[in-house]
Design a protein around this nucleic acid. Structure first.
Lengths: 345, 345
DNA sequence: CATCATTGCACAATCGATAATGCACAGATT
DNA sequence: AATCTGTGCATTATCGATTGTGCAATGATG
């Protein structure tokens, strides 16, 4: 077979048909009428291009047009279904507008995140969607101020001008905590993720204010953890279970941590919800099938992905149709069986 | 702030320093000595480039070098942790060799898959890793024969020349089936995925030959299903549970289908493993935490991803160091509690 | 028959980086 | 002084597609 080389250029097609590359280009880009290309010529070009499977070289096109029709996506861990789902909807939404996705997995490492950011930038992506890791987003801000369209999803920076889409973390945490209180819980531990990032701050604030609203004191000893991962959840739960008094409920601010919590609880031969109640922020598909179906806060990550793309394209095409570029989506509280009502005890 | 426009070209840097773009290009690509650029000049270029944050435009570079340092990845569903994990390791392995990943989610649609393939090709990716959907891979073969490096992962085409990495599906299915037989099961249903694709064929063959080895007849009525998704697993299980005689065990050839099976079993108020045993091909992180920890066949998808990248780069760089370009990885059989020993009954 | 508008397409420059080639100039050699 | 060898860099063409402009040929008009 013939190699896919310079035989596939519109220049080749042009020579082959006795036309100029200009004409072919204009026909294939649908500008035939605008440039008064005869309709016989146009049709002939189209059919020959299809027959020989010739399509304009995207790299050359990108260079000339200063546009790549590519969006960069940086997520902490694509193997995490939360980000997987997000990525999936971002990809399909982008595809609708003829954009492709350049994927970077920051691997929960801020160094890799920064590196990825510059990588995407030097690849001339038209815009970047990022779910950042850390407390600081100065590298994003720098790029953004230089004019590169960016949208932040999930974790965000409240004091930063960059557009973002996230859940209404405060309200969700508030409601979940209230639910625990309504079920008679008084000592409620909170396993937080990375402190200092907007996401965590909002969730912890929701937790605290729910306690305060119901006259319960906030004991910061019961706000533990510092990382959104399974191991942190495991370790902190191990420690929490040794406390005296022991909390009657644990509110995990992330599903990975909830996972770690579950294995710690199991190891201590305790049971959910008989010995301890558990609620998870974030929900995974299988939560309903766990040994104790887990009560959880579900985020609309599909919607989040679509909105992120729309906001990004809005920036790229300079339409600026969004009045508010900081979007918070409502969450859904899925009550299952991991919380016990201990009001009577 | 200044926009990231033509100020960031090496041409600008060259004029700014009173040099030619050629010289700057050679210095920045580490070819200073080869082209006898003076060391003072070289150092000055490097430091100025760093100061002004100027880096060669990748698009122009790609055009000139006819190479994009980008690999295309097509998966059926990136939200599925199996593919998420695969993607993650592909990305990090590719990154080590300075390649980026252009992600396509075929959404379990063969039309989208074909479209994605041409999209990646027209984007001039240097190679493609694909986990195909269907029985036919003619579109891959066509591209491959035209010289585009391709590696197939997970699902594959046995009669096709394209390199692939997959698990030893036959052996894994054989062992799992034997395990059921050793536990006294005689009527073992098999929920298959898409029939006809190499993956399914191998797994079903393993299932059948294990039965035959132990003198059990293969009843094709108990080989059901036609799609690797949750709904198929649910529907087929619903039907299986109405059969007379009812199977005492179900071997699901995919985790999504196992998932559907679990929900069907739950709905019928039956229990795993007391009423029916269950084994899943593919394993997910949370299987150990399910109401009945699920016995499953774990694939080495991390390794699979790394090998896929290595085989692809091998093709791209025309090293051809692989003697055998069809790789089958061993699996791990994780025995938990979803299979009951009914030998005595 | 001369002028003019219209149709149909090509020329040349451009996007930014790279590679083959070539040309000055310094110092060394005879 | 004339030639030679190296050093240090610039000139120019190229990758493939796109765009403003321009130039023929055709038919219409007076």
């Amino acid at each position: 077979m013939e190699p896919l080389s310079s035989q596939n250029t519109i220049k080749y097609l042009a020579e082959h048909m006795g036309l100029s590359a200009t004409t072919v280009s204009r026909v294939l880009s649908g500008q035939a009428k605008r440039y008064r290309i005869g309709s016989k010529t146009a049709k002939a070009v189209i059919s020959e291009a299809a027959r020989l499977d010739i399509t304009p070289n995207k790299t050359a096109r990108n260079l000339r047009l200063q546009k790549t029709n590519t969006l960069g996506l940086i997520v902490p861990n694509i193997a995490n279904p939360f980000f997987g789902t997000l990525a999936r909807h971002i990809e399909s939404e982008a595809r609708k507008s003829n954009y492709s996705i350049l994927l970077c997995d920051s691997g929960e490492s801020e160094m890799v995140e920064v590196e990825s950011l510059w990588l995407l930038n030097s690849n001339n992506v038209d815009g970047i969607i990022v779910s950042p890791l850390g407390q600081t987003g100065s590298h994003f801000l720098e790029l953004y101020k230089h004019g590169k369209p960016i949208v932040i999803v999930d974790r965000y920076f409240p004091d930063m001008d960059i557009p973002y889409v996230t859940s209404d973390n405060y309200r969700a945490a508030f409601e979940a905590t209230e639910y625990l209180i309504f079920n008679g819980h008084r000592i409620i531990a909170c396993i937080q993720g990375l402190p200092g990032c907007g996401l965590t701050t909002d969730r912890v604030r929701g937790y605290k204010e729910a306690l305060q609203k119901h006259g319960l004191s906030v004991n910061t000893d019961f706000i533990v953890g510092d990382q959104y991962d399974q191991q942190r959840g495991y370790i902190e739960t191990k420690l929490l279970l040794k406390r005296n008094p022991r909390p009657t409920a644990i509110f995990s601010l992330g599903s990975s941590m909830a996972f770690g919590a579950m294995s710690a609880i199991l190891e201590e031969h305790l049971r959910v919800p008989d010995d301890i109640s558990l609620i998870s922020f974030d929900e995974l598909q299988y939560f309903a099938y766990l040994s104790t179906p887990l009560t959880a806060i579900a985020q609309q990550n599909a919607v989040m992905g679509e909105i992120a793309v729309k906001m990004l394209l809005d920036q790229i095409e300079s339409k600026d149709t969004f009045r508010d570029r900081h979007i918070m989506l409502p969450t859904k509280f899925n009550i299952r069986q991991s919380v016990k009502n201990i009001s009577d005890s």
